[in-house]
Amino acid sequence: MLELLRQPWPWYLAGPLIGLTVPALLLLGNKKFGISSNLKHICASCFPAGVPFFRYDWKKEAWNLWFAGGILLGGALTALLLQTPEPVQVHHKLATELAGYGISDYSSLVPPELFTWEGLFTLRGALLIVLGGFLVGFGTRYAGGCTSGHSIFGLSTLQGPSLIATVCFMIGGIIMANFILPLILTL
């Protein structure tokens, strides 16, 4: 059983369980699933700097920071107890493409050639980590939500604006992965 749980979980098991987060939070205390809001709460609690956008009672939203802390702990527990022993299996076309950029280590969930402290001190690694992270934070707040708040919670509650946001997330990602990322990875 433990061996089976250590394997990557198929979409038809993990997807519905992820979807159950929506009713779980609603029923635990009428809370709306949305993780990027936490980035805003961190700004409001640590560096409000008189910006009106960060002047609100973030303590009322503290539950969400606990939820985010739980995600971090959940990641740690999974790595400790249920780590997949085998390398990540990827589509052969992606493996061929990445090999051309010197990326061939599949022992971790993220490529160590880019996302390690050594990687941070390469030009392409720094761009992906620092600029990529910045765009995630700026874009999600500008859009009013991320994959959880718009794509999962918003679509679950049949919100038109969330469908527009989700389509734009996908367009942005498709443009980056196919047309811009190849240039960054050759740096």
């Binding site: 995630v136 859009a143 997330f169 942005g172 443009i175």
Partner: peptide, 18 residues
């Protein structure tokens, strides 16, 4: 606009906020 910018970032980081 925000959705497109987040999408570009997601394609770089491979990670959304969660």
């Amino acid at each position: 606009y925000g959705g497109l910018l987040f999408g570009l970032g997601w394609g770089m980081t491979g990670a959304c906020p969660g």
